[in-house]
Design a protein around this nucleic acid. Structure first.
Length: 156
DNA sequence: GCCAACGTTGGC
DNA sequence: GCCAACGTTGGC
C-alpha cells in the first residue's frame, strides 16, 4: 500500500515546470534541513509513494500536480559539499545527517488547487498543511485528502 | 515587506 | 536543562 505525502517548494527555486523539463522528469529532493522532515525522508517515504507538489511563497499558493517517489531515502550529497549552501560541517559520510529521495513527475494539474480552495473543502479540514503555524516542508497526507485534491486538480 | 509561528543555538 | 536571541518559513 503506497503512502501519500506533500512536498513544498518555492517555484522561484524549483517549480513543477522545472520538474517537467528535468531529465526523465525526475529530480532529487535536496536541501531539507529539518529533523522531522528528515526522518520521513529517511525512514517513511517509500518507492511508489505519491506526492502532492506544492508551491509556496508565490502569487498562487497551492498544489500544482503530483509526483511519484522513484528512489528511497539516501544521504543528501550536498551536506558534504563545502561549496553548497546546504553544506553541514557536522555531517560526515559515515554519519550522514540529512537525507533525500528522488521523485518523478506524474501529472501537472490543469489549474492548481489553491490554498484558499483547500481551506474551503470539508474533507481537508484536518489536513496538516492547513493548520496554524505548520511549516514542515514534507508532510504526510491521508488517502482521503489525496483523493479530494487530485479529483479537483484533474477536473479543473 | 511585514510579521507570527516555529526551530535551533548557545550561554549559563 | 532552561530560555533568550536569532534565523527561517511562508501566508498575506
Amino acid at each position: 500500500m503506497p503512502n501519500y505525502w506533500l512536498m513544498k517548494t518555492e517555484p522561484t527555486a524549483f517549480s513543477i515546470h522545472d520538474l517537467a523539463k528535468a531529465p526523465k522528469k525526475t529530480t532529487c529532493w535536496e536541501g531539507v534541513r529539518n529533523y522531522q522532515a528528515r526522518n520521513m525522508l529517511r525512514d517513511d517515504i517509500k518507492k511508489g509513494d505519491f506526492v502532492l507538489f506544492y508551491h509556496s511563497n508565490t502569487d498562487e499558493v497551492g498544489v500544482y500536480g503530483t509526483a511519484i517517489v522513484v528512489k528511497e531515502g539516501y544521504p543528501d550529497p550536498f551536506q558534504f559539499d563545502k561549496k553548497s549552501k546546504y553544506f553541514d560541517d557536522k555531517a560526515s559520510k559515515d554519519t550522514p545527517r540529512w537525507y533525500m529521495v528522488d521523485i518523478k513527475l506524474d501529472q501537472i494539474f490543469q489549474s492548481p488547487v489553491t490554498l484558499t480552495e483547500m481551506r474551503s473543502l470539508k474533507p481537508l479540514s484536518n489536513m496538516k498543511l492547513l493548520q496554524k503555524g505548520q511549516r514542515l516542508s514534507v508532510q504526510p497526507v491521508t488517502k482521503t485528502e489525496w483523493n479530494t485534491i487530485v479529483k479537483i486538480g484533474q477536473k479543473a
